[in-house]
Design a protein around this nucleic acid. Sequence first.
DNA 1: ACCACTTTTACCCAAATGGGTAAGTGACGA
DNA 2: TCGTCACTTACCCATTTGGGTAAAAGTGGT
Lengths: 201, 201
Amino acid sequence: MLVDDHPAFRKGMVALLDSEPDLRVVVETGDGSEALELYRQTKPDVVLMDLRLPGMGGVEAIMAIRKEFSDARVIVLTTFDMDEDIFRAIQSGAKSYLLKDTPEDELAGTIRAVHTGREILPQKVAERLAARRRRADLSQRETEVLSLLTKGRSNKEISNSLFITEDTVKAHLKTLFAKLNVKDRTEAAINAIRQGIVHLE
Amino acid sequence: MLVDDHPAFRKGMVALLDSEPDLRVVVETGDGSEALELYRQTKPDVVLMDLRLPGMGGVEAIMAIRKEFSDARVIVLTTFDMDEDIFRAIQSGAKSYLLKDTPEDELAGTIRAVHTGREILPQKVAERLAARRRRADLSQRETEVLSLLTKGRSNKEISNSLFITEDTVKAHLKTLFAKLNVKDRTEAAINAIRQGIVHLE
DNA sequence: ACCACTTTTACCCAAATGGGTAAGTGACGA
DNA sequence: TCGTCACTTACCCATTTGGGTAAAAGTGGT
């Protein structure tokens, strides 16, 4: 099954895969919210899933499918390579994560490998995941503070939003800066955005 | 001519376009630095160009082609829709700017229109350009300061980098905040990143 | 019971930041 | 020549921010 919202890309991918004798695209869609229903109907061996989808995002679609079919084999295939996206995709149960500029032989090889139950991660992706694991993870509250920070909020505004004291906000920021290994709020915001911890727009 | 570094997308686009009786992909490449040479050889009626290309970026490729062939008709076809990317692409001489999720009939229509010499901008893109024009533009120096700001530099660090006083940096920041309509450096950095004025990575 | 961690608050103090005002230079065009 | 604008510097002052230290309360696991 192929889930991607670019018609041209789908068409090309179908042609590419169908030229392999042992691979076939049985169903395709551009809508994440359709993915689960189509999976139920067709029970494909492997799912190729883009992360940026209109309506339901790719990660949610993966989770929905794997909630009902825990043995579903999903390969993430996307243009974006932001750390947090990769992490969430793997967390949600994806077996592999490929960027769209992957050469076609590697692509076919990965599909076959995943189909036989293996998990394949290109070294580039594995490195990112390792980096992500190395990064101390943030507590719930720290994430909330960081999120408001990346919206340009001041300490006072953050404290009001979260119904806590400004002193508390500052305390969170101290640990936050240490964990992110930055020296001030601007750097923290930039890192958070670049690493995909928070999303703009 | 089709310039895009995703083989699957190219394949799909070729199939899509060749199914139109009056359209044909005469040459394709995934490398921006090859684009000029291929253009010289084939003189295509219209160029479809992705902006994110390995090696030479899409904008540079467009400029290189239009420097030698000022009548070249280029349509930008990309996944990214950041304001500044759109602006630079149009500045560099692109006749149209489409996102990759454009339905195929609109795509074919745009290619024909551009071929007859027209310039076509989708509503969405036109709005972005208008917004960009509304935005007060920054002076050379202000852009430099903003760029360092988005790297997390402090006023003192910025002043050292630019060989000016910290007071001067603060003066630039004052006008910068006013022009960007933000209240502090963090907001300025966030806006600059979101609007694509500066690029991460 | 004890430890580790999160969340919360507080206080002190130094440094960085932001706003206001003023003013000199040089360049460019009316 | 005059006005505008970019760039530069300076000073004053209020606010914000960040670092250090401390500690209470709650949670969850060993």
